[in-house]
Computed example of a mutant assay.
Amino acid sequence: MPGKFESRLADLGVILPEAPAPAANYVPYVIVGDTVYVSGQISNGPDGFITGKLGETMSAEEGAAAARTCAIALLAQVKAACGGDLDRLVRVVKLTGFVNSTADFGDQPKVVNGASDFMVEALGEAGRHSRSAVSAASLPFGVAVEIEGIFQIK
């Protein structure tokens, strides 16, 4: 039987995928006490990587949709870290978003809002978090967005 968070996700039409495997020599998450540090999750949809450069080939709205996929992958990692029980999540502590963007693009916060808004929509008050949204000259595989997160669990 799904817990409260997964029921809320289902109401939004979201079923968490299996947690993505790391693409290099690192682990997808580290647990220290009641804190889970999740490695950067890249924008990836049903058709593969979501690539592009904000301010050149993608709009802020398209970037926000890409950031939402990162948030879904972050929650999949948290679920894996919690032994499959997402209800062990207490709160999202912080997200750091990296946006593949041109030097003159200044809407990184609007892009990362795609992840932030999703966390609050899916998790309610537990989804409210601190955040950074920064520009990157490029990201792995040419993806549009990468987001890492810090989560408190019980």
Score class of each variant (00 low, 15 high):
34 D>S: 14
28 P>S: 13
21 A>L: 14
27 V>P: 00
45 G>A: 11
23 A>V: 14
27 V>G: 09
24 A>M: 04
42 I>Y: 12
18 E>M: 08
19 A>W: 05
40 G>C: 05
41 Q>C: 15
31 I>G: 01
26 Y>L: 07
42 I>L: 15
34 D>T: 12
53 K>T: 15
25 N>F: 03
27 V>I: 14
35 T>E: 06
29 Y>N: 02
34 D>L: 05
34 D>R: 14
54 L>R: 03
34 D>M: 08
30 V>M: 06
49 F>L: 14
32 V>R: 11
30 V>H: 09
24 A>I: 00
27 V>S: 13
34 D>P: 04
45 G>R: 10
53 K>F: 01
50 I>T: 04
39 S>W: 03
44 N>T: 12
20 P>W: 09
45 G>Y: 09
20 P>C: 10
26 Y>I: 07
34 D>W: 04
25 N>H: 08
21 A>V: 08
49 F>N: 13
19 A>S: 15
32 V>E: 15
35 T>A: 06
46 P>V: 06
52 G>T: 04
52 G>P: 03
46 P>D: 14
43 S>T: 12
19 A>D: 07
26 Y>D: 01
39 S>R: 13
23 A>W: 07
36 V>A: 15
50 I>N: 03
35 T>M: 11
46 P>F: 06
42 I>T: 07
37 Y>G: 01
24 A>S: 15
29 Y>T: 02
54 L>Q: 07
46 P>K: 12
42 I>P: 03
35 T>D: 01
40 G>Q: 05
29 Y>V: 07
18 E>L: 08
37 Y>C: 01
28 P>G: 12
27 V>Q: 13
33 G>H: 09
23 A>D: 13
35 T>L: 12
52 G>M: 05
35 T>Q: 10
20 P>I: 11
19 A>I: 02
53 K>C: 09
47 D>K: 13
50 I>G: 09
29 Y>W: 14
29 Y>L: 10
33 G>M: 03
25 N>D: 13
33 G>S: 10
35 T>G: 00
30 V>P: 02
54 L>E: 07
20 P>S: 12
42 I>V: 15
46 P>Q: 06
50 I>D: 02
39 S>T: 13
20 P>A: 08
52 G>S: 08
33 G>Y: 06
19 A>R: 11
51 T>P: 00
22 P>R: 00
46 P>A: 15
38 V>E: 03
35 T>W: 02
24 A>N: 09
50 I>R: 10
32 V>I: 10
45 G>V: 09
39 S>K: 13
22 P>D: 00
18 E>I: 02
34 D>A: 12
23 A>R: 14
46 P>W: 01
45 G>M: 09
23 A>S: 14
30 V>A: 10
53 K>L: 04
42 I>E: 15
31 I>L: 09
44 N>C: 08
30 V>C: 01
42 I>N: 09
36 V>Y: 05
32 V>N: 09
21 A>N: 06
32 V>A: 08
26 Y>W: 10
50 I>E: 01
33 G>C: 05
23 A>F: 11
40 G>I: 02
43 S>R: 08
29 Y>I: 02
23 A>I: 11
27 V>H: 06
39 S>V: 05
50 I>H: 04
36 V>P: 01
43 S>Q: 05
21 A>D: 11
28 P>F: 00
20 P>K: 12
48 G>H: 07
25 N>E: 13
